[in-house]
Amino acid sequence: MSGKWKRQVSFTVNGASQSLEADVRDTLLDTLRDRVGLTGPKKGCDEGVCGACSILLDGRAVCSCSMLAVEAHGSNVVTIEGLGKDGEDRLQLSFIAHDAMQCGFCTPGQIIAARSFLDSPGADLTAEGIKNALSGNICRCGCYANIIEAVLAAARSGGGEP
């Protein structure tokens, strides 16, 4: 493969600088999982529907499967692994306390989307608001009722700041 399909990508991941040479075709998801070694973001559908691959890009949740790694150049990326060390993040603790997960495969994406929602100015901190914010995160185990409770509880206890 010739060099012009490769680009140097420099970005911050979970607070640490990363610089790597990426094939322009690689998604950010594959790059995070295969090259950076962060397997928290999951590949559930690879088509931007299930939300399991969600990461924070400059503070907002996006599907890392639906962007190229090269698009992240110069950005600040946070994955589930970067949210709270040892589960100190209130949102993560709230998910655990409310049994808001079964198989756990969608959980990293759910928590990232919830974090982005709680951090957005003027977020509608009601069950309806949470449903709107998390409608892009599919949970096949059907934990939705507990997820709503978990995010509501985190919101009540101060937006889930660590």
Binding site: G48, G51, S54, L57, R60, A61, V62, C63, S66, M67, A113, S116, F117, N132, A133, L134, S135, G136, N137
Partner: peptide, 9 residues
């Protein structure tokens, strides 16, 4: 539109 991750991008 779509869902949160789509709207953010």
């Amino acid at each position: 539109i779509g869902h949160q991750m789509v709207r953010n991008r």
